[in-house]
Design a binder for these strands. Structure first.
Length: 107
DNA sequence: GGGCTGACAGCCT
DNA sequence: GAGGCTGCCAGCC
């Protein structure tokens, strides 16, 4: 996986691996890609990246919706709810419970 | 070809 | 304990 070498490629790979009804954070993806501080870039990769990936499963560390998600935060929230994810009145999810980490032996 | 922006997170003051 | 700045890297102008 990570032998791709490309930061964006890793992000794409991990996002595609997120199971149904689970989520990951920008910081997670950035760290897994090799740059724990590159959370911003994860947003950029997501925005300019392929649309075939479950970007709605990518949320910020507060468990909130992404800022520039197509259709707005409400659209992302709806997609997550459709997957069985429960959100509170603030459209925030239980990040500590729904967060997902990829298997270490995935490679 | 170079520089700026951008869907966030972590550390410092 | 809270607020503000820096860091990261791909894509677009």
């Amino acid at each position: 996986m990570n032998r791709e070498g490309s930061f964006a490629e890793k992000i794409h790979t991990y996002v595609a691996m997120i199971p149904f009804g689970r989520v990951m954070t920008y910081g997670q993806l950035a760290a897994l890609a090799g740059s724990p501080r590159a959370a911003r870039q994860v947003g950029g990769v997501a925005h300019y990246g392929p649309e075939g990936l479950p970007w709605q499963r990518v949320v910020n560390k507060h468990g909130g919706m992404a800022a520039g998600f197509p259709g707005g935060p409400s659209a992302q929230a709806e997609m997550l709810v459709a997957e069985g994810v429960t959100l509170n009145a603030q459209q925030c999810l239980d990040i500590e419970r729904l967060i997902w980490w990829p298997p270490e032996d995935s490679d």
